[in-house]
C-alpha cells in the first residue's frame, strides 16, 4: 500500500514538471515567432521610411566660414561647410545630400533667410538629428535665431527655433519620429 502511494505521488510530480516544461517551451516559441514578425515589420517600416527628409533652415544671420572650425584632412564631417549635421549618429556628408555641394554652398551663402537641405535617409521609428552652426561674430543684432523645420514624406514633423548671440555656437539634438 505504501509502495503504491509513493508511486502515485511520483507520477503526479513528474507529470507536473513535464507539463510545466512543455508550457514554457511553447511560450518561448511564441516569443520567437513574435520577435521575428516584429523584425520583419520593422524592416518593412524602415524600407517605407527611406524617403526624402527635408531640413529647412531659416536664419536671421548669414552663414559664414567658421574661424574656429577643425580643418584637418580626412575627417568624417565636411568642415568646409559652415554647418554640421549628424543623423542617427552618422555625419551627413555632401555625398549624401540630394543636392550637390556647390548648390548647398550657394544656398547657404546667397540667402540668409532660407536654406533647404534634402537628404535621402533610412529613418527609424525614433530619430535624432544633431545640428550645429555658428552665428558670425560681426552679426549686427544682439540676438539671432535659426528656425529648423523637418519634413518627412512632405509632412512637417518638427519645427523649432534656436536663439543665440553673435559669436556663439548654435547646436541642438532634435528627436523626432519617422512617418510610416
Amino acid at each position: 500500500m505504501r509502495f503504491l502511494l509513493s508511486t502515485i505521488i511520483w507520477i503526479f510530480f513528474l507529470g507536473g514538471v513535464s507539463f510545466f516544461l512543455q508550457e514554457k517551451n511553447q511560450d518561448n516559441d511564441n516569443h520567437q515567432e513574435k520577435a521575428l514578425a516584429q523584425d520583419a515589420q520593422d524592416a518593412q517600416e524602415a524600407q517605407e521610411a527611406q524617403k526624402e527628409l527635408i531640413i529647412n533652415l531659416q536664419a536671421t544671420f548669414e552663414f559664414e566660414k567658421d574661424s574656429f572650425a577643425l580643418e584637418v584632412a580626412n575627417t568624417d564631417t565636411d568642415n568646409t561647410l559652415p554647418l554640421t549635421l549628424i543623423l542617427n549618429g552618422v555625419p551627413i556628408t555632401t555625398e549624401q545630400l540630394a543636392i550637390g555641394k556647390s548648390e548647398l554652398e550657394g544656398n547657404l551663402e546667397s540667402s540668409k533667410l532660407n536654406a533647404s537641405i534634402k537628404i535621402v535617409a533610412q529613418l527609424k521609428s525614433k530619430n535624432e538629428l544633431f545640428i550645429k552652426t555658428v552665428i558670425p561674430a560681426n552679426a549686427q543684432q544682439n540676438h539671432q535665431a535659426l528656425r529648423v523645420s523637418i519634413y518627412n514624406n512632405q509632412q512637417l514633423i518638427l519645427d523649432r527655433s534656436l536663439w543665440g548671440r553673435p559669436g556663439q555656437t548654435l547646436s541642438e539634438s532634435f528627436v523626432f519620429e519617422g512617418i510610416k
Binding site: 574656429f68 572650425a69 577643425l70 584637418v72 575627417t75 555658428v134 561674430a137 559669436g167 555656437t169
Partner: peptide, 15 residues
C-alpha cells in the same frame, strides 16, 4: 579630433 574640437570651442568662448 574630438579634443581639438573642444579646445576650439573654448577658444571661441575666450574670444
Amino acid at each position: 579630433s574630438a579634443r581639438a574640437k573642444l579646445f576650439l570651442e573654448e577658444l571661441r568662448v575666450l574670444d
